[in-house]
Design a protein around this nucleic acid. Structure first.
Lengths: 190, 190, 190, 190
DNA sequence: CATGAATGAGTATTCATTCAT
DNA sequence: GATGAATGAATACTCATTCAT
């Protein structure tokens, strides 16, 4: 019997889920601890048993978001295939995590690190950690010139992330969007 | 004695400028009317002589931002040249307005319409109005297939808008970024 | 007509009075801004128009308290007379300001500077300013030895200030207490 | 197997020590049960096994403080000697307990009974019990008039207690302070 | 004995807004 | 046009306390 076993009725994950959903739906600044508490079936004060501050709660959600996107993209990277194919799979995975899979991934895009000055650096580091992973998929491409590689990465990632703005589920699937975006770049770099 | 001559010491533009700067720097939710008032050398209550609400003030800033981007892009569209060249110029103009020119343009990207539910629709319309203009530059491209046109527009616009996230003035100029992005797409669509 | 004339219905003094009374009655930590507001016939938030923080409000009350004690003691110092007589009058004035005259003086004794770390230094300076004045009355005494002078001052001031603990109005008057205390010291120093 | 033997690892004294230290350092109102718990290596809830409320904890600390001062003063009273000499020793003992010996004694001075209305009476009784002891040392003095006796006691006790305000260890020792204070009163009463 | 989790009332403070002057 | 003064609701957070485990 492990000593530190969490209780069965631990509601921390519930809190995290509620926060993720609200941060994604409305944004960080505009979501109150009371909102989150109400959605977790608790009182506002009770949240502080689990998280020392609203900012800490955001960091936890954000970290979970990065973790999920990372996991999805790592899996896509592992599968065999030709570099452009792999990039397409990576983009599809990235988009899925951002648009469909859960609130956590969307928070990573929606909440800007500098919206929350006190933890901006921690958030930025989490995001950068992930972006290095994405860069690996671009580095593997057989490109002619080096400068193009950075531009291609920034362009692709920007386009994917911005998709949150216009994406409506039901129409184009993440995979379809990823395919179209990657193909737009493919021919041009031959 | 002229009847409706605006006073020389009209401080409305001052208010608008302060709001634009603060909304851009910190975001809408986190900027208070008192902050804006202080930056305009007034008291919070006095703002209400000029704007009925904080939301109205945002709409005014946003509209001015769209107007400026629109003006810059329209000028770029007017200049003669081959469609891809023109698109490049349009992108450079768009980026300049977004990154360098003024706070107003940056507010249009930084503030999401749905951050402010009550005026979300008005903001979205303003933004859409502009995006239709941008679309014209894409429509003029000699592309093989129709589907590509939409993807190309969304990709390009997303990549440009997202650049606010990583752009640091001093390094790459807006024009250079625009050129690289457009060229990445050009070859592939021949 | 002076430009910055305060409005007739300015309720700031009301706030100050309420704060003084409550700080004296219950202590600083235990008095809430709501309590003070309720006693001034306002809402808690409204206090912040007049004072930027609870600490600032305390400083204002404290300063007023020191000012009043100072004024009383200065007057006692000005009156002519033999040094011991003058000291007695000074002590009586000090005690009156502390026990009878108003809440402000009592706050100066009741609230310890280090109860409020952030403004401790400002409070201590205010108090020290006054104590230097009190010291003048002791310095004028014809004492044999120098060391005694400091001890006498500390003893007298301590005894006077502590009287807040046991004093019940109706019994001994401040003047009577002062007389007895000073006479206890007088004979011994001849 | 002995029935009521207290456990070896009884942590109650630890709690008491932590509370004494914090009440002395910061004051009662401003010290939280969590602070005390943290300093005792426990969680806040666990304190309630030992004490029914924060107020009870204060009473326990206060009582211990009074007990220690009482013990020190009783010892000083027992030693033989002339009344003024004995008073001086009593004052030195009182001051030591207040300034140097431990946190408990200082709490008795620092925390005013009426800071804690619900237990104010119990605290006052504890304090009075001690003060009667102190009075015995004054009663033994060969004084001319009765009124002086009360004044002398209040003056001396007040001066001693207030010393917490200006005393800085390292400079004057409690014994030296006591000597000076008592001598200031001695001559005058001959 | 002690913890983990929560409560519910309270804290200081902030904010968009109002309106008489 | 703008201010001084205030409102009322909200905000993040704290705290003494409870209680099943």
């Amino acid at each position: 019997m492990p000593a530190a076993a969490p209780r069965a009725d631990n509601r921390l994950p519930l809190v995290l889920d509620a926060a993720a959903r609200l941060f994604r739906e409305r944004g960080y600044a505009v979501t109150s601890m009371r909102d989150i508490a109400a959605d977790s079936g608790m009182l506002a004060g009770s949240l502080y048993y689990h998280f020392a501050s609203k900012e800490d709660l955001l960091v936890a959600v954000y970290a979970e978001g990065v973790k999920r996107i990372t996991a999805a993209v790592e899996e896509a990277l592992r599968a065999p295939g030709e570099p452009w194919e792999r990039l397409e799979r990576v983009c599809a995975a990235h988009l899925s995590a951002l648009l469909d899979d859960s609130d956590y991934g969307q928070v990573v895009i929606r909440v800007r690190p500098d919206d929350v000055p006190d933890v901006a650096r921690r958030l930025a580091e989490l995001r950068n950690g992930y972006e290095r992973l994405f860069a690996r998929a671009v580095d593997a491409l057989p490109l002619a010139r080096k400068a193009d590689r950075r531009a291609l990465r920034l362009m692709l990632l920007g386009a994917l992330n911005w998709s949150q703005t216009w994406y409506r589920s039901g129409q184009d699937s993440p995979a379809a969007i990823a395919r179209r975006f990657v193909r737009l770049l493919h021919g041009s770099t031959l």
